[in-house]
Simulated scan of single mutants.
Amino acid sequence: MPIANIPESYLKIGQESPELLVYDFKMTSDVVNSKVNLSMNMFSFLQIGKKQVHFAGTSVAVNKNQSLLLKKGNWLWTELLDQETIYYCKLLFFSEKILRDFLHKHNIQEHESENEIPYFIIKNDRYIKNYLKSLSTLSETSTPFLNNLLQVKFEELMLYLLQNYDENFEKYLYSLISNEISSFKKIIESKVYSNLKLEEIAFLCNMSLSTFKRHFIKEYEISPGKWLQDKRLQKAKELLENGSFKPAEIYFDSGYNNFSNFSIAFKNKFGVSPKEVYK
């Protein structure tokens, strides 16, 4: 699957990336685990549909009652239609310069945070809904002062979120300009019990599949495919033994696209079928 470079792919040919950009993203079919290289921090105001994103050591899912502020970097996005026949979210991109200027202007002091999370969940309350309407009106307006107005709207939004989410939001804002990179091992072990493919985990590590495999074997002294299979099958066995789930309910999250392949791999490892363990 090709990597989408965002917001570059939304710009006109030859257009340089602006400091602020508003883009209406719409689609009429589901997209699962699309690879996205996000070069700017971004607000994703979900209007219609469902969204799940994976980033390095974590993941998050939201519905149309929530929006996200996402840190720049490599993400896997899953965007799904809900009851309607269209998926729609309004995206607001902002540069690091814009963020630094805002923090400096309002004398917002840096906070130390041990648990750096690359996303911040925002409730789509009445203010946010009205804000998005005003942003849509602004986007439809042709004016030489559009960039200046966008800066005012960006500042308005940030001040509201600071008021609403207090110190938690302040900490998050400073994490957006942090240079820390999650360790290779931390990313791997956070995705053990997901159904992500090796290629997708490699992407989250900013590596090609071949480079990822070399690093993995050096770190764990075993092939990534074998290691992940063993970990996921062991977890599946534990879930079946305590009766938490039926075999047909866990094969996909164990990394298998169909129950038959899961059952064969399970029996090869443990000598019994998943159904026998569940009984």
Rank of each mutant, 00 (worst) to 15 (best):
T211E: 14
E167D: 08
E19S: 13
S59P: 01
K213Q: 15
L20W: 03
N206E: 15
F55P: 01
S182D: 08
N107D: 12
K35Y: 12
P224E: 12
V277W: 01
L135R: 01
M42D: 10
L138P: 09
H104A: 15
Q15D: 09
T78L: 06
N257G: 09
N147L: 05
L68F: 03
N206P: 06
L103G: 04
L103I: 07
F266E: 02
K275I: 02
T85I: 08
E110Y: 08
Y131F: 15
L20D: 07
N37V: 03
N257E: 11
F266Y: 08
S210N: 14
K26E: 12
K90S: 14
W75D: 07
T143V: 08
D253S: 13
M1R: 10
K185S: 11
S44Y: 00
L70A: 07
I217L: 11
D101K: 08
Y127S: 13
V152K: 08
A56P: 01
Q66N: 14
Y119S: 12
W77L: 13
S29Y: 06
M158D: 05
M207F: 09
P2R: 10
L173N: 04
N258S: 13
S263V: 02
E84Q: 11
S95R: 00
Y23M: 05
L21M: 13
S273M: 03
H111L: 14
E238N: 14
G14Y: 05
A236M: 03
M158T: 08
P2M: 08
S190F: 00
S183L: 06
D30R: 09
E241G: 06
L162P: 05
E19I: 09
L132R: 04
V60Q: 03
H54L: 08
I48S: 13
